[in-house]
Design a protein around this nucleic acid. Structure first.
Length: 591
RNA sequence: GCGCCCUUAGCUCAGUUGGAUAGAGCAGCUGCCUUCUAAGCAGCAGGUCAGAGGUUCGAAUCCUCUAGGGCGCGCCA
């Protein structure tokens, strides 16, 4: 239980007492109030809006309610001061021991500090990446991949039961194009001169490997054969080959999906037919004619009766065709069946991470999710904006056609996996993100990756130096937990502990909002506070963490350092970034 | 034409789901190194939160409208 939650519980108890003894009457259910750190530290340790929230239910002005609560709150054992401020905030000051105990809690729980039961083990399916299996991961995929994976880490830490899923589009025409290109590269591998790759096929060099692998496995088996014979086996061969590439690429940044669902399987095992029949049985399918789309001129449009789903019954702007005029399934049908499948597997909450260029996806799928689950299951989409790539400050135009693609592998090789991941989380999902290869490795204040890692490395450095100063002493977290830390009580130190204590709140809020970038910003704030405290020792040697002639004080301060290090590491773990223990040797201008 | 997203300091962006005097970095100016890592820190200056209404104890945040920008909008994939 966090300090905030336990104070909230205490306040609920106090309110119950006031209601019991008749001094407070509530004629409405109690709305939820918050206990949080005040924005201005001079306001105390904790602030609550409970008095303002209760004005309606209690029929009294906020400050009057606050006055009722004040004496009871002052009587709480951990509280040393209560002030009523502004429109009716109640500011609480706590004994320093409360915060000192929190430091020990951090050391005891280690990386698990900040874990929460907020999600109540609810099963959540997060679908992310789901790139077409036609080539390796490139810069355009990375943001969604990192966002999705970090969201999974975050939600798991916040107490959800998370499944990471990849939907493999291995049945569409793009995969046919892949098979045809593979066939060319296969002939090439067998010694044929294939010339230029024709327009409409994939020009990428990586398919040479696929062709060569096929030649190695099957020899001349397909040479001279008709497309009808090789198309399907080559599709299977090429997609599974490339999926393997994709998995290797994702592994470079620590991403591993739990479940891969194949579109082809859904088609072959009858899930599409089954999903369609269910909609039919619910009376949601009919034959009708749609009006022409507005604001867009379509030369070949003509009104034709089609098999339609009553999507508009579920809030959609129009009904949607599920079959084309020739009776073949429309493009969205596999996606519909896929979400039916997810619901069947027991997921009440589904999250898809998509680029903003998939704008209409949610509008089309949410209605079927509502139909299949009778409104019980929920689908959310996190749309992430584009990444603009810069090399030394110069924008790089990426294009599939020209083959000018920066691969995930190249990014990792140039700046490291941790830096790629962290940097992808330095903007809210809906903001455009500039990824500058030079800036990501820059060792300055305005590079957040460096700044946070530097804070962690500084903690490690202090612990190393302390170990030298205090030879033979056990400075492990287990040993430091027993230390007397009553000396950790300066305003700056307590402020830092208050911030550390907010880690769990930050995790819950970020998970609830599905905004992993908040973890990065939390760490940047924490690093700033820590660097600031560290520098106080520059002005005043007595404030340094290591005090050579006072081993006891030094050990007490090491508890704080260890706690900072732990929370940074815990946050980096959510982002799957490896914390650095030393950065000294990386100094570029070191002569 | 419709839908979604965006508009916050000169620039790039946060803003803890409605809280107290709106915050960082960069750029500009002023200080701090015989150092627990100055790769850093402290301070100054910089704002009509695009605009107009509304909701309430209280709005950058929620609602409506307007302006500007991005993305999407077929029986294509």
């Amino acid at each position: 239980m966090t300090i905030f939650k336990s104070m909230q519980a205490s306040i609920v108890g106090v309110l119950a007492e006031l209601v019991n003894d008749g001094s407070l009457t509530l004629n409405a259910p109690m709305p939820s109030f918050v206990v949080e750190p005040p924005r201005d530290p001079s306001h105390g340790d904790l602030a609550t809006n409970v008095a303002m929230i209760l004005t309606k239910a209690a029929g009294k002005p906020p400050r009057a309610i606050a006055e009722l609560l004040k004496p009871k709150l002052e009587a709480l054992s951990n509280v040393i001061g209560v002030e009523i401020a502004g429109p009716g905030f109640i500011n609480l000051r706590l004994k320093p021991e409360v915060w000192q105990d929190e430091l020990k809690e951090i050391l005891t729980r280690g990386l698990a500090y900040g874990d929460s039961d907020y999600g109540k083990r609810e099963r959540v399916n997060v679908e992310f990446v789901s790139a077409n299996p036609t080539g390796p991961m490139h810069a355009g995929h990375v943001r969604g991949a990192v966002l999705g994976d970090t969201l999974c880490n975050l939600m798991a830490k916040a107490g959800y039961d998370v499944t990471r899923e990849y939907y493999l589009n291995d049945a569409g025409t793009q995969v046919d194009v892949l098979a045809r290109t593979t066939f060319l590269r296969y002939r090439e591998a067998l010694g044929e001169d294939i010339g230029e790759i024709p327009a409409g096929l994939y020009p990428g060099e990586y398919l040479k490997d696929v062709g060569a692998a096929l030649a190695k496995r099957d020899g001349a088996k397909w040479q001279g054969k008709d497309e009808s014979e090789w198309l399907i086996p080559l599709r299977v061969f090429a997609t599974s080959y490339i999926l393997e590439l994709i998995r290797e690429d994702l592994a470079l940044i620590g991403i591993r999906h739990d479940v891969f669902t194949n579109e082809r399987e859904l088609v072959e095992n009858g899930t599409l037919d089954k999903a369609f029949k269910i909609l039919e049985d619910k009376g949601l399918i009919y034959t009708g004619t749609l009006p022409p789309p507005k604001g867009k001129t379509m030369e070949d449009w003509e009104p034709v009766p089609l098999t339609l789903f009553r999507s508009s019954q579920f809030g959609d702007s129009t009904d949607r065709p599920l079959k084309k005029r020739d009776g073949v399934w429309a493009y969205i049908m596999p996606d519909i069946a896929y979400h039916y499948d997810k619901i069947q597997r027991g997921f009440g909450t589904m999250i898809n991470v998509l680029g903003t260029d998939h704008g209409g996806y949610l509008d089309r799928i949410r209605p079927v999710v509502a139909a299949f689950s009778d409104g019980k299951a929920r689908l959310d989409v996190i749309y992430n904006n584009i990444v603009k790539i810069f090399v030394n400050g110069v924008p790089v135009k990426l294009s599939k056609r020209s083959g000018n693609l920066i691969t995930l592998r190249e990014m990792v090789e140039q700046v490291g996996a941790g830096a790629v991941r962290f940097f992808m989380l330095t903007r809210a999902p809906e903001s455009e993100l500039e990824f500058d290869f030079a800036k990501v490795v820059e060792q300055t204040r305005d590079n957040p990756v460096f700044y946070v890692q530097y804070a962690h490395a500084r903690c490690c450095s202090i612990l190393r130096n302390a170990a030298e100063l205090l030879p033979g002493q056990d400075l492990s977290a287990e040993a430091l937990v027993g230390e007397n830390i009553s000396a950790i009580r300066s305003a700056e130190e307590l402020a830092l502990i208050r911030f550390l204590a907010g880690w769990s709140r930050a995790v819950e809020a970020a998970a609830a909002a599905r905004e992993p970038h908040r973890v990065a910003f939390y760490l940047m704030d924490l690093a700033a506070q820590f660097h600031s405290l560290w520098n106080r020792g520059n002005d005043n040697a007595a404030l340094r963490f290591i005090v050579p002639d006072d081993p006891a004080l030094t050990r007490a301060r090491l508890v704080l350092i260890k706690a900072v290090q732990t929370v940074i590491a815990s946050g980096l773990a959510v982002m799957s970034c490896k914390p650095l223990e030393e950065m000294r040797n990386d100094r570029p201008e070191a002569a």
